[in-house]
Design a protein around this nucleic acid. Structure first.
Length: 468
RNA sequence: GCGCCUCUAGCUCAAUGGCAGAGCAAUGGACUCUUAAUCCACAGGUUUCGGGUUCGAAUCCCGAGGGGCGCACCA
């Protein structure tokens, strides 16, 4: 069967519904339109047929009559899921449904498979993710989730553009995977006969652009981490990182909450959300609590990076966390925080004053040698964002990398490698700078009320099917 | 990677060791205002796969595969 190469189309379902909302039952408008979409429901009635057609903007009924519609017999034998282009007059039926009274029509493509149960859609997760194209037609909430993701990304870009940021792109193929503590994927470049890593963060490249004179930059893109998959983790995920010259972490906290609240406002029209049946407020300002303060409250005694290591190790072991010999008080405090506080933080909270030991790219805190000017945002029990005053002293940065190398030697897997190119870049002078990274998928999850990260990724990473 | 749960018709689901079923979709038909149309008829199965126990297995056991959740890793 030969189908057309194009269809001369001038109307969308959503626009027609809006423009002709006022006409009465049984009225005819005299307006001739051409529209296209998929047949989602079909009700034949002898010499009449009613089809519900859906396009990207909504649904409209097609009203076919044997006395008016060409090829009426074929029309009444359309399959659910077939794409059609129709031309006819906009009318409202006697029973009150806005319709296109079809004069001519053509099949644009046929559907060999159906789109699931008319009531229930498709609920099998495997089928939904492996054949998202079917899921999107069967389940309106899937379309809404991906639309909201798109709207979140649009809002982030527009807010940053409005504040003078420019968008840049940096390499995904990296000789050294750095900028975060995570295991990379590797791939082989044939001409160089070299194994590249896929980036785990764009951080170091972006700061080199600040050294190069770009004062407000951001990158929105995919990063790759060779780690476990969970309802909150996909091996490739989308991060937005941004850097502002002359700012410190406190300036950046304000921008962080503005961006996220702004995205919610733009997409939902409010910063008061319901996430998984529970109220959540993204309204600014967000709570700011130091890691030591939150952890002290949780364990019922004063703890900090200045506590005795013995005591921190003891508190950890009470919570079934076995401290590695290589952990100092900073790592111990961070672990204790994760064990006691992380899950309980529901509304977005800036957790500030991260230990220097776990923050190899952050600038030392101006009031405490063992801390950095770094925060992470926790929300719904998960990390949402990470930001800090950037470490811009090349000598200090070298020392931090060397500390990381020592930890690696002591058996810690997820540590950063020494990046000589980056240290050399810092030697040209990085101004005081603040940086931020936001997990875009996780922000989209909140705004789309998605329980699983796979819901807001069009094609999440799936296990390839193998013969059993 | 580990643990628990799960997998039945194209889709959504029944069948609680005793004949494998329904609704929708599909197929054939009736019907000039339907709305998940309705009505009649027809068809659809290696119960994910491979073993085992049993007179008898969708059901119980073992193994494999896919998925969900939790843990670990991490954002």
């Amino acid at each position: 069967m030969t189908t057309p190469y194009n269809f001369d189309h001038n109307s969308f379902a959503g626009d027609l519904q809006r423009d002709h909302a006022a006409i009465g039952d049984g009225d005819e408008t005299g307006v001739e339109v051409a529209a296209a979409g998929r047949v989602m429901l079909l009700r034949t009635q002898g010499k009449l047929a009613f089809a519900t057609m859906r396009d990207s903007t909504g649904e409209i009924q097609l009203f076919a009559l044997s006395s008016i519609t060409e090829e009426f017999e074929s029309f009444s034998k359309l399959h659910l899921g077939d794409w059609v282009g129709v031309k006819g007059e906009v009318v409202r039926t006697k029973r009150g449904e806005l319709s296109i009274k079809v004069k001519t029509w053509e099949t644009l493509a046929v559907a060999r498979h159906n789109f699931g149960d008319k009531w229930s859609g498709i609920s099998d997760h495997d089928l939904r993710y492996r054949h998202r194209e079917a899921d999107l037609w069967a389940n309106p909430e899937s379309r809404q989730s991906l639309s909201r993701r798109s709207a979140v990304i649009r809002s982030l870009r527009e807010q940053l553009w409005a504040q003078g940021f420019i968008e840049v792109e940096t390499p995904i193929l990296s000789a050294i995977a750095s900028g975060a503590a995570a295991r990379p994927f590797t791939t082989h470049h044939n001409a160089f006969d070299f194994d590249f890593s896929l980036r785990i963060a764009p951080e170091l490249w972006l700061k080199r652009l600040v050294v190069g004179g770009f004062e407000r930059i951001f990158e929105l893109g995919r990063v790759f981490r060779n780690e476990g998959i969970s309802p909150r983790h996909n091996p490739e995920f989308t991060m937005i990182e941004l850097y502002v010259a002359y700012w410190d972490v406190y300036n950046m906290m304000e921008l962080t909450e503005q961006l996220c609240a702004g995205a919610a406002q733009a997409v939902l029209g409010t910063t008061q959300l319901t996430y998984q049946d529970r109220e959540m407020s993204l309204a600014t300002p967000w709570a700011r609590r130091s890691m030591a303060e939150l952890t002290s409250e949780a364990v019922g005694e004063e703890v900090s990076v200045h506590s005795s290591r013995e005591r921190l190790v003891e508190l950890l072991s009470q919570r079934s966390v076995v401290a590695n010999d290589s952990w100092g008080t900073g790592r111990c405090l961070a672990e204790l925080f994760e064990a006691t506080c992380e899950d309980g933080l529901w509304n977005p909270t800036f957790v500030t004053d991260f230990p220097l030991e776990v923050s190899p790219l952050s600038r030392q805190h101006r009031d405490d040698d063992l801390l950095t000017e770094r925060f992470e945002v926790y929300c719904a029990g998960r990390e949402l964002a990470n930001g800090f005053s950037e470490l811009n002293d090349p000598d200090d940065q070298r020392k931090r990398f060397e500390d990381q190398a020592r930890l690696k030697a002591a058996g810690q897997d997820e540590t950063m490698e020494i990046d000589e190119d980056y240290i050399r870049a810092l030697e040209w002078g990085l101004p005081p700078t603040a940086g931020l990274g936001i997990g875009v998928d996780r922000l989209a999850m909140l705004i789309a009320d998605a329980p699983n990260i796979r819901e807001i990724i069009a094609f999440p990473t799936l296990k390839p099917l193998r013969d059993s």
